[in-house]
Amino acid sequence: MSRTRIQWFHFTAPANFYDLAGRLIPAFALLSVILFAMGLYLGLWVAPPDYQQGDSYRIIYIHVPVAWMSMFLYVLMAIYAGIGLIWRIKMAEVMAKSIAPTGALFTFLALWTGALWGRPTWGVYWVWDARLTSELILLFLFLGYMALHAAIEDRQRAANASAVLALVGVVNVPIIYFSVQWWNTLHQGASITVTQAPTMATIMWVTILIMFLACWMYSIAVVLARARTEILERERRARWVQERLESEKP
């Protein structure tokens, strides 16, 4: 027990985290490129068109993975923010702060691809139904979190205030997910759920899962890279940074 504890806290030390992340980023980036290539090939070339929507449904191979990512990243950000708030682990604060921009980008992409998909299928870019509105609120939560971080000068107070915002916003995630079940929405229900067989052809949901994995690998690489820069900035006066400045290329 005590051994594993030491192992775990090893990487909460900034220098160790910095080195480990530096080694992990290329691996995740490579995996992401491979998975994206596979997913794009399957989604755009191999998968057949849909019987109702023709080729316009191919937007699903971005839309669904990025929409899932937006929710997963928000929950992850809130967990890190909560750990930082309660146990005062600096690396958790760094991780929460580093996830926010990527989460915001995925949320924006979910809204953008949704609008471009909605126009040809529903006939409108945007409607104020529960699913679309709650996803828009998620974007504002990400942006609000980033703005709060930027607005408060003192680092500790900024981390605390934005962590509270992140935790409060978690209630929005189940609302997004269940909105299509709880209320009448223009948005259709879920095609892929944990409990039931997917209501789509195998090649289609497999491709969605591959794209989802690709998005995960991408997110991990990008978030670790951002966290690394953040650590460097915070610890610039530490001895370990000076050592790496002499030995390492950027």
Binding site: P49, Q52, W122, V124, G189, A190, S191, T199, M200, A201
Partner: peptide, 18 residues
């Protein structure tokens, strides 16, 4: 004044639908 199409969560190739 406006008509929007709503589609279900089923996706399949045309041959499967047939």
């Amino acid at each position: 004044t406006q008509v929007m199409a709503r589609h279900d969560e089923e996706y399949m190739p045309p041959e499967a639908a047939e």
